[in-house]
Design a protein around this nucleic acid. Structure first.
Lengths: 118, 118
DNA sequence: TCCCATGTGTAGTTCAGCTATACATAGGGC
DNA sequence: GCCCTATGTATAGCTGAACTACACATGGGA
């Protein structure tokens, strides 16, 4: 997940990925990074310089809210979805599916010519 | 297809869309724009200021080649895929499907909660 | 002691899609 | 004749998000 094609793919869907990871329970930055890496089998490995500014942006947009936890040696900033964040997640998920279908329409004639992926 | 979410989605997949439109036969800029608009039911409406620089970039990367047609009153620049362009189309289509599956994994727990789209 | 994983953060670069603008032709309505 | 729209290509400059590179700190294993 390091070439420019996939970097640009991220650009459109990274907000959606992070919001979906936060859908069920609060998480902190590092755990979000790990979960996305695990779910994607290592194909999506967010850099810290990508993730933290993103979280700050989502928070300033009031889609997530944060709370520091200093109870352990490791300071962690926990994030959870706001009401607006849940709404955004739903709408972006719908748009994502709509868009994927769009591209699918264009690729359908190409597909039969594609050799089976390993 | 005008908000910032979809603008960023485009960024990752626009090359793929244009290459796929050119897969079967040569086309010129305006016809590419129309075909993408039609296939997407108007959801993806490329601006001229997006399409033409993109075509120039694809050509400078030698993924497509062009030929002017001045035989009619309307000057048209026809584009067709090069060998490298066909290869790029195949590889990007594979990456696209892989990436879509990735996001799908993350969204799967969300899906049952999504109200049916109209 | 050293190194790595953990944990958060910022400064500056890159680059693609955007807006705005420019130019030109064909054809229909007034 | 004139205007407006669709057609057709093109460039200059703006914006914004993911990137690289760096900074700082703790915990635990070798």
């Amino acid at each position: 997940m390091s070439d420019s094609f996939q970097r640009d793919l991220l650009r459109g869907s990274l907000d959606l990925m992070v919001l979906s990871v936060l859908a069920d329970e609060p998480q902190y930055g590092y755990s979000i990074q790990k979960q996305i890496r695990d779910v994607s089998q290592g194909r999506v490995d967010l850099k810290a310089g990508t993730l933290y500014p993103l979280l700050h942006r989502l928070e300033s947009d009031k889609l997530i809210r944060s709370k520091w936890d200093d109870s352990t040696g490791r300071r962690r900033k926990w994030y959870e979805l706001t009401k607006a964040g849940h709404n955004r997640l739903r709408s972006q998920a719908r748009e994502w599916h709509s868009y994927v279908e769009c591209i699918g329409q264009l690729l359908t004639p190409i597909l039969p010519k594609l050799p089976k992926p390993a």
